[in-house]
């Protein structure tokens, strides 16, 4: 699907990032847990110095193709998965390594459990706590371990996004804790954390109306052209005039329990973004479902 706006990693407008993996039940001590990776798989290649001209041309068009190390006789360059086909056009190329440039989140759920402090407990329902934190090394500039205002805000809107989905009234006088730690960040971290949190809550056996799926859609512009896109990565978020709209969708009812926006859009653009969001959230929901079911398929006996 060619267009006037080139995405930095070579994706089509409607594509989610190429690598989204979720594993349920990864932490031993927690009542429920999930590990999620959401990003772009990068191939680090080594080519002779002469090939750098080709690389420069590509980098101009797709900024996520980039040289990361220069030596006298060779250079090392990164290629995002959607553009791996370009690697074949290089002479004497060697693939050194593959790694993920994206979000990595560990979510732990404890509960229902005894409330702390006791006097905040409710006789009508469980109290939900959501704590979103980022590792100091997860972001480009080392972040102090002290909770930031951003983390506090994200924790709150995330909690609100989940409260009505859970059947909290079944557990009076208790507390349900959701802890999300982002160990690697690349735009859309709150959305990655919430997607994993749904899986962790289901893994803990907390009754829910649906598996809420989170995704961010938005708008990016370059040279006066704009496009509505799904799942902005960091490069796109940082583009001038970019609009970012993270959301949490209840896939079955197609309803939003979290919606925030950064930027300026027209009424028609908003409509288009919401519809795109719902479509993408359903894709995410399929990945969440598979993660939960896979946990049980892992242990099936051969005489099923």
């Amino acid at each position: 699907m060619a267009g006037e706006v080139i995405r930095p990693d070579g994706r089509s407008y409607e594509d989610l990032r190429d690598t989204i993996r979720i594993e349920a039940g990864v932490l031993d001590r927690a009542d429920g847990s999930a590990y999620l990776e959401w990003g772009t798989t990068i191939r680090l290649v080594k080519v002779p110095a002469q090939e750098e001209k080709k690389l420069s041309k590509w980098s101009e068009k797709w900024p996520m193709v980039s040289v990361v190390e220069r030596r006298e006789d060779h250079v090392l360059a990164e290629f995002p998965k959607p553009l791996w086909k370009l690697i074949d056009e290089l002479k004497d190329v060697e693939v050194v390594r593959e790694y993920l440039r994206g979000n990595k989140v560990f979510v732990a759920v404890y509960g229902p459990r005894e409330p702390i402090p006791r006097h905040e407990a409710s006789p009508y329902r469980a109290i939900l706590r959501y704590r979103y934190t980022m590792s100091p090394f997860s972001v480009p500039e080392r972040k102090s371990p002290k909770p930031s205002r951003r983390e506090t805000e994200i924790s709150m809107v995330s909690r609100l996004a989940l409260e009505k989905v859970l059947f909290l009234e079944e557990f009076p006088m208790t507390m349900i804790d959701v802890f999300a730690e982002v160990i690697s960040a690349d735009a859309g971290t709150r959305v990655a954390a919430l997607t994993a949190a749904s899986v962790a809550l289901a893994d803990a056996g907390i009754p829910m109306r649906d598996l809420p799926a989170a995704v961010a859609v938005g708008k990016i512009c370059s040279d006066g052209n704009c496009a509505i896109v799904a799942d902005l990565n960091k490069k796109e978020e940082d583009m001038e005039g970019a609009v970012d709209l993270p959301m949490v969708v209840l896939p079955r009812k197609e309803e939003f329990t979290l919606l925030q926006m950064d930027g300026r859009v027209s009424r028609e653009e908003l409509e288009e973004m919401l519809e795109l969001g719902i479509r993408k959230a359903k894709e995410i929901n399929r990945i969440q479902r598979e993660a939960l079911l896979r946990k049980y398929e892992r242990v099936s006996g051969n005489d099923e």
Binding site: L100, R101, G102, K104, S135, F137, S138, S184
Partner: peptide
């Protein structure tokens, strides 16, 4: 394991899991 870190490691020692950056 962490793109933005200058060095990183994830260890699982008998179920004890620690990530360092």
């Amino acid at each position: 394991v962490v793109y933005n870190a200058d060095g990183s490691a994830l260890v699982n020692l008998g179920g004890t899991k620690v990530v360092a950056g």
